[in-house]
Every structure is written in structure tokens, then in C-alpha cells.
Nucleic acid binder design. Sequence first.
RNA 1: GUGGGUAUAGUUCAGUUGGUUAGAAUGCCAGAUUGUGGCUCUGGAGGUCGUCGGUUCGAGUCCGAUUAUCCACCCCA
Length: 456
Amino acid sequence: MALQAPEGTKDLLPDEALFWNHFRQTAADVFGRYGYVSIETPIFEQTELFVRGIGEATDVVSKEMFQATSGENMKKLLAGESIKAKSRLSLRPEGTAGVVRAVVQHDLVPQGAQPVKLMYAGPMFRAERPQKGRQRQFNQVGIECLGAEAPSVDAEAIIMLMRFYEAVGIPVGSMQLLLNSMGCETCRPAYRERVKEYMEMHADELCPECMNRAQINPLRAFDCKNPACHTIMEDAPKITDYLCDDCKEHYGEVKGYLDGAGIAYTEDARLVRGLDYYTRTVFEVQVVDGLGSQNAIGGGGRYDKLAEEVGGRQTPGLGFALGYERCVLALQAAGVEFPRAGRCDFFIACVDDSVRPVAFKLLQASRDAGLMGDMDHQSRSLKSQFKLADKLDARVVFILGPDELSEGKIKGRNMVTKREALIDLEKMLSLLSQFGGQPYGGAPSARIEDVFPADE
RNA sequence: GUGGGUAUAGUUCAGUUGGUUAGAAUGCCAGAUUGUGGCUCUGGAGGUCGUCGGUUCGAGUCCGAUUAUCCACCCCA
């Protein structure tokens, strides 16, 4: 049997790849206005980064990471030998840890400096069982802001996130923004203890898994889908009642900024994110249609201790990530039209093979001048060539045959108006050559109207 | 890791209580008189029915295994 893409992976075929590019471009446009600039970090990192950054007890790290060890080291591991810590590599399961590592390594936020605002877009890897809205390799777009503790940064990022969804076409009414504060190192431990105590009081009513959570990370029990646990946890102590004064103030100011910007949100004391690094503000955006049970299209929060965790100086941070594939599902559910394939200025149709060399030369000159066009390479009938031109959505078809060539002309046909006219081949070539110089990547570029005016 | 569903043409799917040469739509290719697209019409190519085994005179159809995939749990974007 023919080989196929690995479990949980998906090819982005041309139309989809086109939309992925559009999606990233939109993100760059929106986030760029808020001062975010791109960063590219490796797709694999030392495993230790994720263990320390995300947390050893998290599901993401404890059971969902793809190891990416070299062949030599893999042999050693299989033979039961140990390898150096720095040789233990993993494919990144999320983007934040790598970005924070880069910020620390290159000291992008020197003491007392302005905060740094970074964005990224690319594939993440988690060895989970695939289902709707969940793949083993999936694409995320995310941002990280390091060096600023102010609540305005939190609010700004949330506003920016919602603006992005809107820009990319997700109906505002289909989204719900959930907001919570998880406290900091001074108030959360006490709160955790209270939740743990509460859970132990209700030990016989909670599922075994939640009782396990009570020991490792009690707050995660808020996420349990078991109805019984759900009702028990409804009455559990709420973090908002236990926030220290600083956290309470911070959270209040975030909400104030959001209110002022007219951003609707739902406070959800049960919103606890599954990554250990989160502190204070956490948020998640869910959609109602199209996503099955994986209904979060984006989420993030503040992580004021993460930089220290990976060996840097104390640097407050905040970020979010949004899942590309899930956004696509949400867009499809909302019936949003996807942008079609790119422009095609012209197509050169050859009446017979004798004119192909001239057509080829003209085609190349046109491309060098900045036009997008193509010709047939299979000696197809003129009729077929027109069909092909139509499929490419060419605006103009140039027809070149022995008749035209003998007079030094070429015929053009506007595919919309159906107007046809003969133009001088030499004039066309010299016109195109004026756009030479830096044909690719440069500004000067011919338009199809320059060569074949739309109407006269 | 656990549970359930599905597997037939490039794609989306039919296929009767097991019975001769496995179908449709769409896509692809070619024609419908002279060198011209979309619409329409006609024709054509394309499938060892996921794989292996079993029951049977006979299996796309029934049974088992296996693989893949989808959905759900867990968790996350």
C-alpha cells in the first residue's frame, strides 16, 4: 500500500496553504499595529526546557511530547545507556517556552529596558490521539510580551486577540471570551491548599482521577467533565476570594481596560489552564459551533515566573496562542468564504508547435516584468488551452499562431470583455523590458493593462 | 492509554436476503466541421471493494484478525 501522512498530521494542499499564509499575514498585520515583531525559534529544544518551563506533571510534558533524539543517541538509549541532558531533545509542544528561552539567552530584556513584544507562527507537536480540532502536528500563531507587569499589557493582548479573530472572519457573536485570575506565588499556594482540603472533604464523591489531581494539581479538578465532580467543584472555594491585594488590583485593572474597550467577557472562576507557568490573568476564547469538544480557539495568560524557571532574571511575561486548524473549523462552521487562488494576468496560447519558442520568450519577458502568466506545455489543442486559461482565471489570453507571427504581431483577448486586438510583438517586448532591472522582489512591476489595455 | 463508528474511482458516496461484467455524482481527458474559454450534449480513462485469513458452490456483502481513519474520554490551541 502507498505510504501516507503519519497519524494526526495533515497536508495543507495549495488552497489550504494559501489560507494559512493569509492567516499568518493577517496576524502579522494586526499584531504589528500593537508593536509585535516576528521571531523564529527552533522546532525542537532541549527536553529540559519544556520540563522546567511547562511543568513536569502536566499532561503535555508527561505524556504528549515527541522525542527528537539523534540516531546515535537513540542507539545508546535503546541499549540502556544514558545520554547527556543537552542531547535529550523534544519537538516543541507549544511556543512560549522556546520564545522565553530565546529572550533569556539573548538578553532581549536587559534590566530596566522596554518590554519586548514577539510573535511567532508555526507547527507544534503533541503525541495525543487525534480527534476533531486536534492533530499531532498543528499550527499555532502566538505572541509573547516580556518585561512588562502592567495590567494594560494583559488587556492590550486580549483586545488584540479579539481584533484578530474579527479580522480573519470569525463572527463576533460566535465567540466567548473567558477570563480569570490564577493569583501569584503569594496567594495561590494558600488557595490551592484550601481547594485540596475541600476536595478531601468530598473524597468519596469525586472521581478517582480528581482525587489524584488533588495531590498533584488540585486546580485542574475544575476542568473535570464528570458531572458529579462538576457539581462538587461548583461549590469549591473560588480563587477570586483568595487573591492577594496586588493580584486583586491587577485583575480589576485588566477588567477595567477591557470594559473601557467594549470587550465582552465572562468571568469564569473555574478557568484554570493546564500549563504550570500561568500566574494572574488567564483567558480563553471558545466558539459554539463546528469544533466538537475541542472548542477553544485560543488562550493564554500571564507567566511572571517563567523566565526565572528557565534560568533568567525575574521578568514578567504574558502571551497567548491560537490554533490555526481550529480557527479554520470555526470559519467553516460559520460559512465563511475562503479566499481563492491568486491572480493570473495572462495565458499564452499557441496555435501550433512552431511558435512555441517565441511564446516561451515572450512568457519569460512578461514574468521578468512582473506579470503572472503561463502557457501550455503539453501541445494541447487551442480549445484546451483556452479551457486551461479559464481555469487559471487568466484575464488576458494571447494567441500566437503562424499568421500573427508572420506579421510580427500577437493577438490578445480580454477574457471578460471578449475584445480581441492585434499588438506588435516587438513593441510588446520592448515595453516589457522597461520593467526589467530588478524584476523579482523589487517594486517596479508591469500591469497587464500596460501591455493589453482593458478597453479603448 | 480507554471506548465506539467507518474503510468501495482523484473526491463525496450508492451497492437489495451473499449470486454473472461493481455504479452515480463531481473532477480529469477528448470530441460536438474551418485557429477561441465558461453553459450544454456525447464519448473515454480511472477501482486487485484497506490488508490477511475464515465460512460458503459462490463474499464488496457474513465472521475473525490487522492496519488506517473518524468521533468521544483525558488534556490542550
